[in-house]
Design a binder for these strands. Structure first.
Lengths: 112, 112
DNA sequence: ATTAGTACTTTGTGTTGCAAGGTATTTGAA
DNA sequence: TTCAAATACCTTGCAACACAAAGTACTAAT
């Protein structure tokens, strides 16, 4: 209940994470740990307990598929890949995201 | 579970709503129904059952205060007003929002 | 008196992010 | 050989939140 700055960020991440995952996988297939790294690099900090269930949800919705691949070091990796349905959903998310950005701008602009 | 386009929007709204409320009240005090109207005008559709608990939460956190005012037509109105603490939180949210916008841009830009 | 309009409130449900802990595989050092 | 470290994936329990739906209360006009 403390750390309001971090809590603010956590709240805002909600609903945007799915959009980030699909956007990342739209570029190229990836496995969970590498997705985590990319999110961290982009300043969107997420933990494993958030990402894994999310990937499983999106897979169950038919937005993603996956395949196992051996690794040269460490256990095998589950490579996720966006599907046609996932790409369609991503298109809707692009529109929705732009709308929200515009909405915030509209509300903010009236201040002047 | 249907209407994926609307569901996408609903998910993305999560976490941004508090930011919108504080931003609106940072301009001038307002009562719930008028806030609803402003959100609708800005394309951020919200229903009563979402807004009222949110206002109460923010009031309980000390981000807002309110006063009753008689209306010339209809029941009295609860006018909400942002507090110093609310303005401070709004400042943090401004930063958090800009970070998320940048994050999305970063992820998207690598596609080219 | 009754209805319509305005405004505020509450209850129950499903989704989601997260902390914390767990399982499994590989590699390299003791 | 065994044991620790690194990598990777998964699960459980909890709290927060948006929403649908239904409810309460006040006012004004019919």
């Amino acid at each position: 209940m403390e750390n309001s700055a971090e809590n603010v960020r956590s709240q805002m991440r909600k609903g945007v994470l799915e959009y980030c995952i699909l956007s990342i996988l739209d570029k190229k297939e990836a496995y969970a740990s590498s997705i985590l790294d990319e999110l961290k690099a982009a300043n969107m900090i997420v933990v494993e307990g958030t990402l894994y269930p999310l990937l499983i949800r999106q897979k169950n919705q038919g937005l993603l598929s996956y395949r196992w691949e051996e690794s040269t070091q460490g256990p095998p990796r589950k490579y996720y890949c966006i599907t046609d349905k996932g790409r369609q959903q991503l298109g809707e998310m692009d529109v929705a995201w732009q709308e929200i950005v515009d909405t915030i701008r509209t509300i903010k602009e009236q201040q002047r």
